Simulated assay, not measured.
Amino acid sequence: MNLQKLFEMQRQLDEYIEREHPRQEGEDRLSKKILALMVELGELANEWRGFKFWSHDQVPRTRVLVNRTTDDIGFKNIGPEHIKNPLLEEYVDGLHFLLSIGLEIAEPQKIDIARWNAAEADNITEQFLHVMTHAINLGNTLRNNISYYPFEYEWLFLRYIQLGEMLGFTWEQIEEEYCKKNQINHERQDNGY
């Protein structure tokens, strides 16, 4: 995965959003981004389903057939069928916020998750908890003006990448889906989202 390419794409999207939705005086947009990341983590976990011990259906949502069969005036079979991967889509939604947070508090060109040689968790549930813990820790360090937030951000980033690997995503899949969703996000801004 070309992280610098993704950071640059995110920078362009963030600048567009800033123009369309200027920050309000006193607005803590960084805290909102951290909360948004945590919401996306929850949505990702929901698509993964592996924590739902009360359900017989714990199969991750990785394939959904989308078939647009009729248009507004009743014509049949107007759109091609395609498969989407809700699990990957939610992962990439979280990645957008993670990159956006990094653009505000870190120096993306200096991020080197390879230096962190941290073992992944024993299972995906534990990995989700690690990511959420680091997101909370990052929010707390920023809110309390503690200076080691770049360190906490890199840990969060590493754990998030590891989570994607544990969910079975390749770097290529993540980058491809990120590019698709980034384009959709630009189109949403164009259309007054």
Rank of each mutant, 00 (worst) to 15 (best):
N2L: 07
Q4M: 13
K5H: 05
D14H: 09
Y16K: 13
Y16V: 04
Y16G: 01
Y16I: 09
E18K: 08
E20I: 07
E20V: 05
G26C: 14
E27C: 07
E27W: 15
D28W: 03
R29Y: 04
L30Y: 08
K32V: 03
I34L: 02
A36L: 06
L37F: 09
M38F: 06
V39C: 10
L44A: 05
L44P: 10
A45S: 02
W48A: 01
F51N: 00
F53H: 14
W54H: 14
D57K: 14
V59I: 14
P60G: 06
P60M: 04
R61I: 10
R61W: 08
T62D: 00
V64D: 15
V66P: 02
V66D: 02
N67K: 14
T70I: 15
K76M: 11
K76F: 13
G79C: 00
E90G: 01
Y91D: 04
Y91T: 02
D93W: 10
D93E: 09
G94Q: 03
L95D: 10
L95T: 15
H96I: 02
L99K: 10
I101N: 03
A106Y: 02
P108R: 00
Q109N: 09
R115K: 11
E120N: 02
A121E: 12
T125A: 05
T125N: 07
E126D: 08
V131F: 01
A135Y: 07
I136D: 04
L138G: 06
L138I: 09
L142Y: 04
R143W: 10
I146V: 11
I146S: 05
Y148L: 09
Y148V: 14
Y149V: 09
F151L: 14
Y153C: 06
E154V: 04
E154T: 13
E154F: 02
W155C: 15
L156R: 07
F157S: 02
F157V: 06
F157N: 09
L158I: 14
I161F: 09
L163N: 01
L163P: 01
G164D: 03
G164Y: 00
E165R: 12
F169T: 07
T170M: 06
T170P: 08
T170H: 10
E172T: 04
E175V: 15
Q183R: 14
Q183C: 09
I184D: 06
H186K: 11
H186C: 06
N191W: 07
G192C: 07
